Amino acid sequence: MRRRLFPTLLVLAALAGCGDQAGSAGRTADGTFEIVTAFYPLQFLSERIGGDMVSVTNLTKPGAEPHDIELTPRQVGDVAAAGLAVYIKGFQPAVDEAIDLEAKDKAFDAASAVTLLPAGGEDDHGHEHEEAAGGEDPHVWLDPVRLATIADQLAERLAQADPGHAAGYTERARALHTELTTLNTEFADGLKNCQRRELVTSHTAFAYLAARYDLHQVGITGISPEAEPSPQRLAAVAKEARETGTTTIYFETLVSPAVAETIAREVGAKTAVLDPLEGLVDQTGDYFSVMRQNLTALTSGLGCS
């Protein structure tokens, strides 16, 4: 059960965090605008758009699985002291709670910039996920087109919060939008002609990517990577993998590959990494390098030419 952060703790932590700041509200001692981000893709956007004009703190440590993180008092203080908090509402309950209590008037919900897909329910072939239907899928960053829209709106929000550097935010967001458009073209071209379009994944993080490029996601588990699939679900996925001639079962970087390996053995397939980019494992890479690695894994596993 998730431990809750009570308001008293949040207030005390916020006061402690503010006390650590030598600069004015929302700025470091040297005047740099402070941004707190919930997890890696939002850190990436903030750093690329903010450039040297911002200082970015990521609440999810490298290599940590972000869904159920808990915040330390110091991190809650960081939220309270920042000039802008960037998050996706509904993805990380502890972050939602801290922002609701300490930064509601200076927060940017990245998901509010785009149309979201429903979470849970059935996959593209009518098989029910382990999780009940309801809510919205937060994994918008895996669609470069949606991420470009989020980048544009984040730049606008930064320009409002820090108008002295608005032109720079706009210029860098425009350049990032162009790069994301190029990435979208690479995915569209790379996944146009494939022998298979079924995407069997360890959990259903890839609905946006699948929808953008006409793939059919089959998740072993639902939105939460920690969910345990039932024997019936494992049997259903194995059956579908055999029927569709699936040769690759994809697992992700921050959770155990055991379930994907079980399905792969059952159907005589191999396994490969498909990174949902919820956290950056290799600190020498970035969003673009990991997405291009994903494209290579997809074109190989799906038999694309």
Rank of each mutant, 00 (worst) to 15 (best):
M1I: 09
R2M: 15
R3A: 15
R4E: 15
R4V: 14
L10C: 08
L12S: 11
A13T: 04
A14D: 11
L15F: 12
C18K: 14
D20I: 14
Q21M: 10
A25P: 06
G26T: 07
A29P: 05
F33I: 03
I35H: 06
V36K: 02
T37D: 09
T37W: 08
A38Y: 10
E47L: 11
E47C: 12
I49S: 00
G50Y: 08
G50R: 00
G50V: 10
G50E: 07
G50T: 11
D52R: 14
M53P: 05
V54P: 00
T57R: 11
E65L: 13
D68P: 03
I69D: 01
P73V: 07
Q75V: 12
V76F: 12
V76E: 04
G77R: 06
D78P: 02
V79I: 13
A82Y: 02
A82I: 07
L84Y: 11
G90E: 15
G90L: 13
A98K: 01
D100I: 07
E102P: 02
K104Q: 14
V114Y: 03
V114D: 01
L117Y: 11
A119S: 15
G120K: 04
G135E: 08
G135T: 09
E136Y: 14
D137L: 08
H139K: 11
V140A: 02
W141K: 02
L142S: 00
P144N: 12
L147C: 02
T149Q: 15
I150M: 05
A151C: 08
E156I: 08
G164C: 05
A167E: 05
A167C: 02
G168K: 04
Y169Q: 03
T170W: 03
R174F: 06
R174A: 14
T178G: 13
E179C: 09
L180H: 01
L183E: 06
E186A: 07
F187M: 04
A188S: 07
L191H: 00
K192V: 04
C194E: 04
E198V: 13
T201P: 01
S202Y: 10
H203N: 14
H203Q: 09
Y208I: 10
A211E: 15
R212L: 09
D214T: 13
D214W: 14
L215D: 02
G219Q: 10
G219S: 13
S224L: 10
E226Y: 15
E228R: 12
P229T: 10
S230Y: 14
A236Q: 14
K239E: 14
T247K: 14
Y250L: 06
F251E: 01
S256Q: 14
I263N: 00
R265K: 15
E266L: 08
V267W: 05
T271C: 08
V273Q: 04
L274R: 00
D275K: 06
P276A: 06
D282E: 15
Q283F: 08
G285A: 15
Y287E: 04
F288N: 01
F288P: 00
S289Q: 03
N294H: 03
L295M: 05
L295F: 05
T296I: 08
S300H: 11
G301D: 03
G301W: 01
L302D: 01
C304G: 02
